[in-house]
């Protein structure tokens, strides 16, 4: 009985077929866009809604290579740096604090009783709903944007890390006490290294949300940033800038995800092999 290549539960696609299949949806999407763009341009050569590849390359050259006449800065890099700084600050702060609180809430029953319920309720607050509060209380500068990213990611990260800590077998914790571990040593020597890879995995998952909060905050009040630019040029229907920007954000997101996965595999060999 030959093994099917594609159809059915027992299919075993060969290596080249797997790569081809993976590339296919991308090609189809680009093709569909090209056809639609061509059709619209046949009707109206000045169409702005579905710009052709040439138009987009021109627009990208304008923002990525030519310094802005007024400020002397290259717009794309300036925006990217501003956005990534906000993202890094918000997510970095969330990760560090989530590790500290998740470890302690997960291990110490007293702290768990104190904070667990509060954390569950706080994580239910839609972060975007309190964006106005942040702008009112922190002003429209960096602090409010970083705070929004932090508030959007910290509770989820903390809850996930707490769960990971609780999943560590009691046997390990009892054994560490018989080996003379103090509470501090248990937290930072035995539990922290074990949940770090899991924390990086949760970070990968919350990064998507972090981008959402970043772009929302930038859309509402900012003077630079990837989200700011997209919403600025929207007024001129500049799809030839918006689409490359979206592609760039997607690429950045993909790169971070890949980087985190790579770190996990490299730094925590025991974790990857075990799974």
């Amino acid at each position: 009985m030959p093994t099917p290549k594609f159809w059915g539960l027992n299919a075993r696609p060969s290596t080249w077929l797997r790569y081809t299949l993976a590339a296919l949806p991308f090609l189809l999407a680009v093709l569909a866009y090209a056809v639609a763009s061509d059709l619209r341009h046949a009707d109206n050569p000045d169409d702005k809604l579905l710009p052709g590849l040439g138009q987009m390359i021109d627009a990208v050259k304008q923002v990525a290579l030519v310094p802005d006449k007024r400020t002397g800065q290259v717009v794309l890099w300036h925006d990217t740096l501003a956005s990534l700084t906000r993202l890094g600050e918000g997510v970095g702060l969330a990760l560090v604090l989530a590790l500290l609180s998740g470890l302690n809430i997960g291990l110490f029953p007293g702290l768990s009783a104190l904070f667990s319920g509060f954390l569950v309720v706080v994580s239910m607050i839609p972060p975007l709903a309190i964006l106005p509060i942040l702008f009112i209380s922190l002003g429209v500068d960096e602090a409010a944007k970083v705070a929004l990213i932090f508030i959007g990611t910290y509770p989820v990260l903390t809850r996930d890390i707490t769960l990971a800590v609780r999943a560590i077998p009691t046997e390990q914790i009892v054994k560490s006490a018989t080996l003379g571990a103090s509470a501090t040593a248990l937290v930072y020597r035995i539990v922290l290294p074990q949940i770090l890879p899991r924390a990086l995995e949760s970070l990968r998952l919350v990064l998507g949300g972090a981008w959402l909060f970043l772009i929302s905050a930038e859309a509402i009040a900012a003077t630079e940033g990837l989200g700011y630019r997209i919403f600025l040029v929207r007024r001129y229907l500049a799809m030839d800038t918006i689409i490359p920007y979206v592609a760039w954000i997607t690429l950045l997101g993909f790169l971070f995800d890949y980087l985190l996965r790579f770190c996990n595999r490299r730094l925590f060999r025991w974790y990857g092999d075990k799974a």
Partner: peptide, 10 residues
């Protein structure tokens, strides 16, 4: 020494 989970995987 427990039946399982005595060792630290990391």
């Amino acid at each position: 020494v427990f039946q399982r989970y005595s060792l630290y995987p990391h």
